[in-house]
Design a protein around this nucleic acid. Structure first.
Ligand code: MN
Ligand code: MN
Ligand code: ZN
Ligand code: ZN
Lengths: 137, 137
DNA sequence: CCCTTATTGCAAATGATTTGCATCACTGGA
DNA sequence: TCCAGTGATGCAAATCATTTGCAATAAGGG
């Protein structure tokens, strides 16, 4: 991973480019997949014995706020986080094995309609589809 | 509320028609709106001083399992529960005042497409749209 | 009305996430 | 390159919604 790009991006957003933040970004980039705070923490603790889970949470929260990362509630309790890069999309989740597949967003036109019907300003939306994958079926 | 209908419905699903369950159903029916466990608990505790929040949770969970009620994660942390009655729908949420508006489900065709593309068995889905209502804007 | 069993009251535990505070490490400027 | 100021982190403790264990209670079929 080219750190300098991320260092710039962090500074741009008013965040200091700390070791911890860069390490967390690195995991998010190379996995390129929704991960929990605990997931990220486990991966990094090996080489960073005194990294704390609270730091991971604080980092992810600031990334969400700065729109570097998106927070997802795919299954009950644990939240997942994924890098905001590439196409806007949603997720199809296998309820047996937990596989997560990205899916296209079908809501463009629907949102236009909604604006007309409700006079709301639309800011964001969340869509998750739950099913059983072919292997688990 | 006509209790006998609900008593029958509960028995049909293999649940005993207890005072607590009927009271919780009554709140859900008359509010006809997503409510948190705490919401329901507060409303009922006035007349039921020894109803417990844990009972409300246990009841709601069994209702979800028996498909009498649907659990929604509209905002962070607290879950909401709404009676499964009327049209299948989703929600538009005002991020300022918390207003919740039911909206039609636009996903029928999209799900067909998904089945073809992914070979998943689709079981359920969740859609929430966040915005600002005209009054808050 | 009684017996069996599900359900509740109650209190304690859980588990993800947050927070307070002292210390540390970035970063922009000297 | 060094320094001061401020934001970030380590660490431990707190929060808060939700769950759970267990003994006591109340449905409801017979
Ligand atoms: Mn994704
Ligand atoms: Mn609704
Ligand atoms: Zn699967
Ligand atoms: Zn509003």
């Amino acid at each position: 991973m080219d750190q300098s790009i991320w260092i710039d991006k962090l500074k741009e957003k008013g965040l200091k480019a700390t070791q911890q933040r860069l390490a967390i970004l690195e995991v998010l980039v190379e996995e390129n997949f929704p991960l929990s705070a605990q997931n990220i923490f486990s991966k990094l603790r090996r080489n960073n014995p005194n990294l704390r889970l609270s730091t991971v949470y604080r980092t992810l929260n600031s990334f969400v706020e700065k729109k570097i990362v998106r927070k997802l509630d795919l299954i009950d309790k644990e939240s997942f986080f994924e890098l905001l890069s590439g196409e806007h999309h949603h997720h199809l989740i296998c309820m047996k094995c937990g596989e997560i597949i990205p899916i296209d967003c079908p809501l463009k036109d629907y949102e236009e309609e909604l604006i007309d019907n409700t006079d709301y300003t639309i800011i964001d939306h969340r869509l998750k589809i739950y099913g059983i994958c072919p292997r688990c079926r």
